[in-house]
Design a protein around this nucleic acid. Structure first.
Lengths: 208, 208
DNA sequence: TCCGGGTCTGTATAAAATACCAGTTACTGG
DNA sequence: CCAGTAACTGGTATTTTATACAGACCCGGA
């Protein structure tokens, strides 16, 4: 029911493009012209359908009264997760310290949130205390990827290494020891894969 | 001549705010209502004045036909500088590999460009080969700041240390030697201060 | 003093845009 | 086979919007 038809998807993409180019939403007539509709009502009905499906909002009576809901979420930006409250899902509202807009093209795959790193256990991978890591939320991880894992209600960033039923969470710092997790005994929740790193304020002086 | 009056500045700020909130530009009547004008023509004349001063574009005949020129520049995002052609200014068009939108609140002071780092000379400061550093363009630097410097047509990222007329460009890696610059003999151009670091694609596996 | 720009009121009108209504065609699932 | 939905054409009433014109007031510079 909530799935868009190919035509509806085209309409939404057209509106996004138009917004980028013109800085304002299109009118019914402009949509109709772009798609070759001979009646603006064809556009009207597409817009109604898209509103029913929750993809956009229409402001009654206003000219160019089309608001894409996606763009609102994009405008919100990525949530920055600071301290993760025990037992709460990582993206719970109370964990969000701020939101930052990040160009989606900058990282791939697309990150879902930023996580503030505590401690120097990943120093040799260039991830320092206080750095923000951009995380793509997926449970599918491969060995040698740097992951965000939750173990005993502790959230940690480590390099992932699987050896049969044994998972090793490897620090990138000789001062720390690898963490051994036996999946038959302990539960390990993968909160995502690190797809980027972001450090604020190197100006004042940072480390050594 | 190109200076905006306080009232004109208010108008521009109002349009920016409206764009953020509604996702479309305001009409003359909406501007008039917000400012308490009793005539839409007051808004019209402000828009004309702002167009004359080059702050925005008006699309004749189109409803909500206001395009802020600033927002276009903001949409362009920060330029990513790759290889710097010898003798060319760092922000020359031919040095720009791409543009990325970055939340201005993320870094402070505001960065002017991103520079792709080559080599591992700043490894211990968490800046690795291929990282992007966000750079605030200023010639004013203090000791211990990480700077982008140009020396003999080579652009390099190092920690700055001044000792009277002698400047030391300090690597953050024991395998590299500090660079000694005597300002009486050599010219050193400071291209800016590093205010942030950005690494793309840590997912696949990075270093050690 | 006169001029021009900035800031606004008030009125008017044409053009742009929305919001309906009545149909048509084609496809899909019960 | 029929109902429902998607995807249109064609048209119209109504509202929204842009824009022009006629003034008014203040201020600073020539």
């Amino acid at each position: 029911m909530n799935e868009l038809t190919p035509r509806q998807r085209q309409i939404v993409e057209f509106i996004q493009q138009w917004l980028m180019d013109a800085g304002r939403p299109p009118t019914r007539a402009e949509i109709a012209k772009a798609f070759g509709f001979k009646s603006p009502n064809a556009a009207e009905e597409h817009l109604r359908a898209l509103q029913r499906k929750g993809v956009l909002d229409l402001s009654p009576g206003a000219s160019r009264g089309i608001q894409l809901k996606d763009s609102l979420r994009e405008q919100m930006g990525l949530p920055l997760i600071g301290r993760v409250a025990a037992g709460k899902p990582i993206l719970a509202e109370e964990n969000i310290e701020a939101r930052y807009q990040i160009d989606p093209q900058l990282f791939s795959p697309r990150p879902h949130y930023l996580l503030k790193v505590k401690g120097m256990s990943m120093k040799d991978a260039g991830i320092l205390d206080g750095d923000l890591v951009a995380v793509h939320r997926t449970p599918e991880v491969r060995s040698r990827q740097i992951v965000v894992a939750r173990l005993e209600n502790e959230v940690t960033v480590k390099r992932y290494k699987q050896d049969g039923p044994i998972v090793w969470l490897m620090p990138a710092n000789d001062d720390f020891d690898p963490i051994r997790v036996d999946l038959k005994e302990q539960s390990l929740i993968i909160e995502g894969v690190v797809v980027g790193v972001l450090r604020q304020g190197t100006g004042k002086g940072f480390l050594q």
